[in-house]
């Protein structure tokens, strides 16, 4: 309950009656309908649901990459567009999307160059975030010299480089195998604990959502909407084997129920 109160005190992301309709040739598509959600500072919120449920669309709306057609959405008390201009968040995509012509350090430096950080500060920040994602010493390598998991870690470092308070992650580990994924999940939690960022995390893996989140937002399609918001009762400190505890399994069960209720698998 304490957690919830703090959310009330400092809402970082606030959605009230948010709807988003795409006009297509086959008529309107309701990607989001009546979404109400408050994300507090330091929350780790996962969005889970089948494809077409609008979880990615909602994350993109927060990032001002899509624009809601209804309702009110604020980030740090500003419109998403203003928040983007204020560089309020770092965004991690499903693919690492590193520039092949830049070294790892060069890739992490990219946002810093664009945002006009001084050369000395660029160097310092690159070193800092590379060590944050355990990639010290890989700065001079080119992306193709790194494994997929390492590339995704570099892309997380890139999103962290300019020290935005919010980290938005769109299925960042979706393309990786389960062993790598487990390790990155564990590292992401450590990183979250160290930096205290607010994280929005889109996934379609129930264990991943339960393992990582303080809150799990269950969504369902046609129209994309929230069907359940689950507050995690797991402690912040989470070793990987917490996934075998009854508490974990109970939360996972509730997520599964929520998914089933919202979506008849027709």
């Amino acid at each position: 309950m304490m957690k919830d109160l703090s959310s009330m005190a400092a809402p970082v992301i606030e959605a009230q009656g948010v709807g988003l309709t795409f006009e297509t040739n086959d008529g309107p598509v309701h990607a989001l309908k009546d979404v109400n959600l408050t994300i507090g500072r330091g929350d780790f919120v996962s969005f889970i649901g089948p494809s077409g449920c609008g979880k990615t669309t909602f994350l993109r709306a927060i990032a001002a990459l899509e624009h809601p057609t209804e309702g009110r959405l604020t980030v740090n008390g500003m419109t998403p567009d203003k928040a983007r201009q204020a560089r309020a968040y770092g965004y991690v995509f499903q693919a690492a999307g590193l520039y092949p012509w830049r070294t790892i350090a060069g890739n992490v430096k990219l946002p810093l160059e664009i945002m006009g950080f001084s050369r000395a500060e660029q160097e310092e920040r690159v070193q800092k975030v590379l060590s944050l994602v355990d990639l010290e010493g890989f700065g001079k390598k080119f992306p193709w010299q790194l494994s997929g998991g390492m590339q995704q870690r570099a892309s997380i470092a890139r999103a962290l480089a300019f020290d935005a308070d919010i980290l938005l992650m769109d299925e960042p580990f979706g393309a990786l195998d389960e062993i790598v994924r487990d390790r990155l999940n564990e590292e992401l939690l450590k990183l979250w604990a160290r930096t205290g960022k607010t994280i929005g995390f889109v996934t379609h893996s129930i264990p991943e959502a339960v393992y990582l989140s303080t809150r799990i937002v269950v969504m369902s399609p046609r129209p994309g909407r929230i069907t359940d918001v689950i507050e995690s009762t797991l402690p912040r400190e989470r070793p990987l084997d917490i996934r075998d505890t009854p508490e974990f399994i109970a939360i996972a069960h509730r997520v599964r129920e929520g998914l089933r209720a919202g979506h008849s698998y027709d």
């Binding site: 990459l65 983007r84 560089r87 995509f93 999307g97 990219l110 664009i114 300019f162």
Partner: peptide, 12 residues
């Protein structure tokens, strides 16, 4: 699109 979106998030 993803690479262009990335730069958009930096407000480039």
């Amino acid at each position: 699109g993803m690479q262009l979106d990335l730069l958009k998030t930096y407000n480039a």
